[in-house]
Design a protein around this nucleic acid. Structure first.
Length: 150
DNA sequence: CTATTGATTGTTCAA
DNA sequence: TTGAACAATCAATAG
């Protein structure tokens, strides 16, 4: 069962009016920055295996929550596959997503931003709980990785 | 068969 | 302020 309960967002209605013009994220003011050097030019592919190797089941440390863009991807992917059943692979979709994402207006994106914001809040709490658990007495990991035992 | 890569942007941490 | 890294996904590829 794990999850997948997000079948229907159910319009969680994340305080639509709460925003009231108070945006915690300051996404604007990007015109002068020019994105620097295309964002981390060194990253490339020399980071060794940065990404997960498979299904890393870490019941311990909570992993970073997906960003708004990723949520958009989930929805976009479905539509994209329907409109482009010939296209396979996320690479093409990713490009299409990125392109469309930029065309989206702030209002459209804000919806995903909102979701991501909540997710981060939950993530933050997960971390707090995780830390608490650590203090509780479950001292595992720390830093030593000398031996792996399962 | 198994593991890794690739492509997208957003968010966070450290110096 | 900026670099660096990682988040999900799934086809394709490498060994």
């Amino acid at each position: 069962m794990a999850k997948k309960a997000k079948g229907s967002h159910s319009a969680s209605s994340p305080s639509t009016s709460a925003s009231s013009g108070k945006l915690v994220l300051r996404i604007k003011s990007n015109e002068g920055i020019k994105r620097s050097v295309r964002q981390t030019n060194s990253r490339k592919k020399l980071i060794a295996k940065q990404k997960k190797k498979k299904q890393k089941i870490d019941a311990k440390k909570p992993k970073k929550p997906p960003t708004a863009f990723f949520y958009f991807l989930e929805d976009f992917r479905k539509e994209f596959q329907e409109q482009n059943p010939d296209v396979k692979s996320m690479r093409d979709i990713g490009k299409a997503c990125g392109e469309k994402w930029k065309t989206m207006t702030y209002e459209e994106k804000v919806q995903y931003y909102d979701i991501a914001t909540e997710k981060r809040a939950e993530f933050d709490r997960a971390v707090a709980e995780f830390n608490k658990k650590m203090e509780s007495g479950e001292f595992e990991e720390s830093d030593e990785e000398s031996e792996f035992e399962e």
